[in-house]
Simulated assay, not measured.
Amino acid sequence: MRNVVFDLFYTFTAALLYAAAFPLLILFSFKKKYRESIPARFFGIKNPPFRDHDLWFHVCSLGEAKAIAPILEKLGDKKIAISVITHTGYEAASKYAAQVRYLPYELWLWFWIERPKTVVILEAEFWYLLFRLARIRGGRVIALNARISDRSFPKYYRMRWFYRILLRQCDHIFCQSTEDMARFIALGATNVEVVGNIKLAQKIAASKTYPKPEGLLIVAASTHEGEEEGIIQGFIEYRKYNPSAKLLVVPRHPERFAKVGELIERSAPALSLSRWSESQSMDSDIILVDAMGELNNLYAISDIAILGGAFAPIGGHNPLEPAHFGCKIITGEQIFLQRELFKYVSHVQFVGLDRITEALMDAQEIPPSQVNGTVDLQRVLDYLTEK
């Protein structure tokens, strides 16, 4: 009875939030970034429930969608369904032999979730009604690659009464580290097991081969608002010591391509700039990579990777890909979402934007980064496929 009362209260709260946000949802649905996801998630447009399936994976975005590839490869003829939150996640998930949907807003899950068998929820996608409805409608609920960052745990712990209720709906939690396991247990979770970070099992490869230009090639990868300008200024200063160095700038989000192009023109007027979409030439001093899906191809020919998402409070990005290709990695200090992965990568420089030039100079004396670690997925696969 207590669960039913809480379900009703939670649903009522979700309905109030939906009503309050409705005007903004209409407005944002016209933005290119959300043109598909908001209509699908919040208004049910072109987003029907899954047809019959064996395993349903819920991921958030690009990184999690890519992370499940080694597991999907080993599931044989199982019928797979994948739900996502973001457009980049949808594009990545659509490459698999699977049904792909945007996960509806929680309020609509009452009408959307039917009879799941096994629901696998990646990392920190802790939506109460997703867990609850999957469970009460007959599905096993499994948290995979589960994590709680150093930064987030105090907030979770203050709400531990809520997470105790949520985690009670979870049959098993496969977490990334012993620190994560201790945090989940502190929140009231049971059946917690450490298997490591499943991203260590990813097959990392370039899809195209580009010729490496002469001189040092630096790639500023997955950059965010507030990061590019400091990286560009550091690069300009470094060019005084190494005039042949070139910089590839790869913004994380495609809707920022034009804005970053304008920023480069304004910040580095003395350097030549070209856009990848116009010519895949690397003859310019700075190349704006205004295209998706090229990062591994560019890591493969780069000497140094300045990894974004950690100079601003984003939480960092996956260092395994540049390390796999032997790039010397420079990144910021705010890696709170990727701290576990960085444990497996050697020779990384953690600096602020004001020390980019110094880090580029120091990179001459530092060995290439490399990945030192593996993960065994067999325990996860056995659990997922058991009857």
Rank of each mutant, 00 (worst) to 15 (best):
S177I: 02
E179G: 12
T190A: 04
S222A: 12
N297R: 01
V5E: 15
G308N: 05
I142P: 02
G139E: 12
E214T: 11
D52W: 00
I301K: 02
L377N: 02
K246W: 09
A310S: 15
R101Y: 00
H58Q: 10
P367V: 12
R2W: 11
Y241A: 15
R51H: 13
D54R: 00
V59E: 00
A245V: 10
F350R: 13
L247I: 03
L122I: 01
E227K: 03
I165V: 15
A20T: 14
G332Y: 02
A221P: 09
E294A: 01
F311S: 04
K387P: 10
G230M: 08
V345L: 11
A40H: 00
A206L: 05
R252T: 05
V192I: 12
K387I: 07
A21N: 09
R2A: 11
N372M: 08
G326C: 04
I286R: 06
E64K: 01
I148H: 07
W108C: 08
D290S: 04
W56P: 05
L377Q: 09
I113L: 13
K155N: 13
S346M: 06
T118Y: 01
N372P: 06
D150T: 14
K46L: 09
C170P: 07
E229W: 00
A189M: 05
L216D: 03
I304L: 03
E386A: 15
F235D: 13
I121T: 11
M159W: 14
N372E: 12
P243I: 04
T209L: 12
Y105M: 10
V59Q: 00
G188E: 12
C60F: 04
V348D: 11
L8E: 13
K246F: 07
A201S: 11
L130T: 12
I68P: 10
